[in-house]
């Protein structure tokens, strides 16, 4: 077989295939007619054969790269994932897959949870007992700002002499239950954006830093645990306990748990490097990274939910008892979800 003869004969086929590949990348496989798809599949194999022929006969690097490129694009089109129903997949992930994954990697989750909640509890208790220690952990101006926030915010039932004028007026209007529903939501939207940006950012960073042998994740967890604990202890010791607790009880369930879970996913990455078992560290990362990132996506969604609760429900003028009731329910819900959701369904991931 002569090169020239071969080229003459196959040129038409290649052009046809190029056209089909272009159509597939433009309009997608699902839009192609059946006959076209069958032709694409047939031509793909023919071109693979042509490429092998040309390469083995050393018929020219340019020709090889031309066909290589064409077959590569065909390969991309041919082996791309079939279009699947995204909403059912998401449904399945959040009802079954996510809690199952968290349970399957419970030792990492538990470690991260302890690394986050234990220092949080210890600093909280210590600083409530010795409030001045707070200045050793958190800068003074930040503490002042925090206190200011809880002094003036949200709770309209408790009269606070130090309320600033504007807040006072808003609180009053809330109390009267008049036009403020929309205004309240509008104003709180700024905070929703902030919580999404800030908290989810922390969780994603905690996850990503896991690749540094887990050290980065441990640091983020400890740091945030200590700071949150210190602030909580300090605000309560300053006498704003009621308002603070009613504020955090609801969204804390999702938020704090999700940060611990994102940290746990980061520790999975670190552990994949430290204990690669039979694999090379990189293979180990690749195989376990997928589960880790799924868990991280779940945690990110939890943080979105937390941000919405924190922005619109937590500071609202609902009575404290209702908030504690709802908050308690949410904590139960979150832990029941991770404990029992999808327990009876076989893992098929």
């Amino acid at each position: 077989m002569n090169r020239k003869h071969f080229l003459n004969q196959r040129r038409v086929v290649w052009k046809r295939f190029e056209h089909l590949v272009q159509r597939i990348t433009k309009v997608g496989k699902s839009r192609l007619r059946g006959a076209e798809l069958a032709e694409f599949s047939r031509l793909f194999r023919e071109l693979s054969n042509d490429l092998a022929t040309i390469r083995s006969r050393a018929w020219g690097q340019q020709l090889v790269s031309y066909l290589n490129d064409l077959v590569g694009r065909g390969h991309n089109g041919f082996y791309s994932a079939p279009p699947s129903n995204i909403s059912t997949k998401l449904m399945r992930f959040f009802t079954i897959g996510f809690p199952q994954l968290v349970r399957a990697n419970s030792k990492f989750m538990l470690t991260a949870w302890l690394l986050f909640f234990v220092p949080l509890g210890i600093t909280w208790a210590t600083i409530q007992w010795q409030p001045l220690l707070a200045y050793r952990v958190v800068p003074a101006e930040q503490l002042d700002m925090m206190e200011q926030m809880y002094r003036s915010r949200d709770d309209a039932n408790v009269i606070d002499a130090e309320d600033t004028d504007s807040d006072r007026r808003e609180n009053d209007s809330e109390e009267q239950g008049e036009p403020s529903f929309f205004g309240f939501g509008e104003e709180r939207s700024a905070m929703a954006g902030y919580y999404i940006e800030h908290n989810t950012g922390i969780a994603l960073r905690a996850f990503a830093l896991g690749i540094l042998l887990g050290v980065g994740t441990v640091y983020v967890l400890l740091y945030n645990g200590i700071v949150i604990g210190a602030v909580a202890g300090w605000i309560i010791s300053a006498g704003h306990g009621d308002r603070f607790l009613t504020f955090i009880v609801s969204h804390g369930s999702f938020e704090l748990t999700a940060i611990a879970i994102a940290g746990g996913a980061g520790m999975m990455l670190g552990d994949a490097l430290i204990h690669p078992n039979q694999r090379s560290p990189i293979q180990s990362l690749m195989s376990r990274g997928l589960d880790a990132v799924k868990i991280m996506c779940g945690a990110a969604v939890m943080l979105f939910i937390a941000a919405l609760i924190e922005a619109y429900w937590s500071p609202s003028g609902v009575p404290a008892t209702a908030k504690f009731a709802v908050g308690g329910m949410l904590w139960l819900l979150v832990y029941a979800y991770f404990g029992f959701a999808g327990l009876r369904v076989a893992t098929n991931d």
């Binding site: 509008e186 709180r188 902030y194 940006e197 950012g201």
Partner: peptide
Amino acid sequence: ALPGLSTGLLLAIWFVNTW
């Protein structure tokens, strides 16, 4: 018109832009 919502949107879009 909507100071709160636009700040929130800006931050949310910033988040999307970053991550």
